[in-house]
Nucleic acid binder design. Structure first.
Length: 121
DNA sequence: ATTCTGACTTGGG
DNA sequence: CCCCAAGCCAGAA
């Protein structure tokens, strides 16, 4: 029907975006990973995948947000500005039993977070 | 107010 | 499979 709730109500614009994104990321259980777009969509912001990355970038050290469980649509760790950091994320994921493929790719079909009862496919 | 950037996504060649 | 271009939107300067 029409457009999915693409735009949030004017009552919670700006600033309210990140808290919501963090909440969505916190919902990702250990051993699972979600894509930026998935997190954004779950938070209610379908096209804000970028903003998710932005929000995570602003995360303070020691935050409870499992930022490492967020990967790009290809199932890979998004390349960031600081080289070497992706190794950290990869390591954190492996600690949660999330293993990478031969090309540093995660099988989203297996480790992808499936919110609600939405059966795969 | 305008301008630029970015831990993204999807589509086409 | 890889590479390139366009779309998208919020936040900071």
């Amino acid at each position: 029907m029409h457009r999915e709730s693409g735009k949030p109500p004017p009552t919670i614009t700006r600033g309210a975006l990140r808290p919501r994104i963090y909440a969505a990321v916190r919902r990702i259980p250990p051993g699972k990973v979600a894509t930026y777009g998935q997190v954004a969509a779950f938070a209610g912001f379908a096209r804000h995948a970028r903003q998710v990355g932005y929000a995570l970038n602003d995360l303070p050290s020691g935050s409870e947000v499992p930022w490492h469980r967020v990967v790009n649509a290809r199932g890979e760790v998004s390349p960031r500005a600081t080289p070497g950091w992706e190794e950290v994320q990869k390591d954190l994921l492996e600690q949660e039993e999330v293993y990478f493929g031969p090309h540093d790719r995660i099988d989203l079909a297996r480790y992808g977070w499936k919110p609600r009862a939405t059966r795969g496919v």
